Computed example of a mutant assay.
Amino acid sequence: MENLKPLSDFFAAIEKDFRISTTHIAIYAALLQLRIERGFINPIDVFSRDIISKVKISSTYTYIKCIQDLNDYGYINYVRSFKKTQASKIYFTDFEE
């Protein structure tokens, strides 16, 4: 159950945030799943192609827009890599602070 706390905290944080869509939620959940698989490290290194395939979206533009929104709204800190061979970094926000 401890693994679900970050997702529960995220849902509590977005409850009244009208800017968040189902695509934002799917991307955040996929990022959180990667974090769990990697032992809850913070940050995680992510390639957009890995998340796009997990979330079942077909547009890189949609991914970048939504991940940038999550960054701008304070749910994550996204450090984009512009190199195809270098992953971007995703820092997760601690909602308890």
Results as ranks from 00 to 15, higher is better:
Tyr61Asp: 12
Phe82Thr: 14
Ile27Thr: 03
Lys84Ser: 06
Asp17Phe: 12
Thr85Ala: 12
Thr22Phe: 03
Ala26Gly: 13
Asn71Thr: 06
Ala26Phe: 15
Ala30Asn: 09
Lys54Phe: 04
Leu4Glu: 15
Leu7Val: 10
Val46Tyr: 09
Tyr75Ala: 07
Met1Trp: 13
Val79Phe: 13
Ile67Val: 12
Glu2Val: 14
Lys54Met: 08
Gly74Leu: 15
Tyr73Arg: 07
Thr22Gln: 10
Phe10Ile: 12
Arg19Gly: 00
Tyr91Trp: 15
Glu37Phe: 10
Gly74Trp: 06
Lys89Ser: 07
Asp69Leu: 10
Asp17Met: 09
Ala26Gln: 15
Lys56Tyr: 04
Phe92Leu: 04
Glu97Gly: 09
Arg19Ala: 03
Ile25Tyr: 06
Ile27Cys: 05
Thr93Pro: 06
Thr93Gln: 08
Met1Arg: 02
Val46Ser: 08
Ser88Thr: 01
Pro43Asn: 08
Asn77Met: 09
Phe82Val: 14
Asn77Gln: 09
Ile20Gln: 03
Ile52Val: 11
Leu31Trp: 00
Asn3Ser: 07
Ser48Glu: 02
Asp50Lys: 00
Leu31Tyr: 00
Glu15Arg: 11
Arg35His: 02
Arg35Thr: 08
Gln86Thr: 08
Cys66Phe: 02
Pro43Ser: 07
Ile52Gln: 02
Glu37Tyr: 04
Ala12Trp: 06
Leu70Thr: 00
Val55Ser: 05
Met1Ser: 04
Asn77Ala: 04
Ser88Asn: 03
Glu97Ala: 06
Leu7Ile: 12
Thr22Cys: 04
Tyr63Lys: 14
Tyr78Ser: 09
Leu70Asn: 00
Gln33Tyr: 11
Phe47Ala: 04
Cys66Gly: 12
Ala12Tyr: 10
Ser58Trp: 07
Glu96Cys: 11
Glu96Phe: 08
Asp72Pro: 01
Glu37Pro: 01
Glu15Lys: 13
Phe82Met: 14
Lys65Pro: 03
Ser81Gly: 08
Ala87Pro: 03
Tyr63Val: 03
Gly39Leu: 07
Ile44Met: 01
Val46Asn: 04
His24Phe: 05
Ile25Glu: 09
Asp17Glu: 11
Tyr75Lys: 08
Lys16Gln: 14
Ser48Ala: 12
Ser48His: 06
Glu2Phe: 06
Arg35Leu: 13
Ala26Ile: 07
Glu96Trp: 06
Ala87Gly: 02
Ile20Trp: 00
Thr60Ile: 15
Thr85Gln: 09
Pro6Ile: 14
Gln86Asp: 06
Tyr63Cys: 03
Lys83Cys: 13
Gly74Gln: 05
Gln68Cys: 01
Ala26Met: 13
Ile64Asp: 14
Lys54Gly: 02
Ala12His: 11
Ile76Asp: 01
Gln33Val: 11
Ile20Ser: 08
Phe10Glu: 05
Tyr73Thr: 03
Tyr28Phe: 15
Ile20Cys: 11
Ile41Cys: 03
Ala29Lys: 07
Thr22Gly: 10
Ala87Asp: 01
Lys16His: 14
Ala87Val: 00
Tyr75Met: 08
Ser81Trp: 04
Arg80Leu: 13
Lys89Gly: 06
Asn77Val: 04
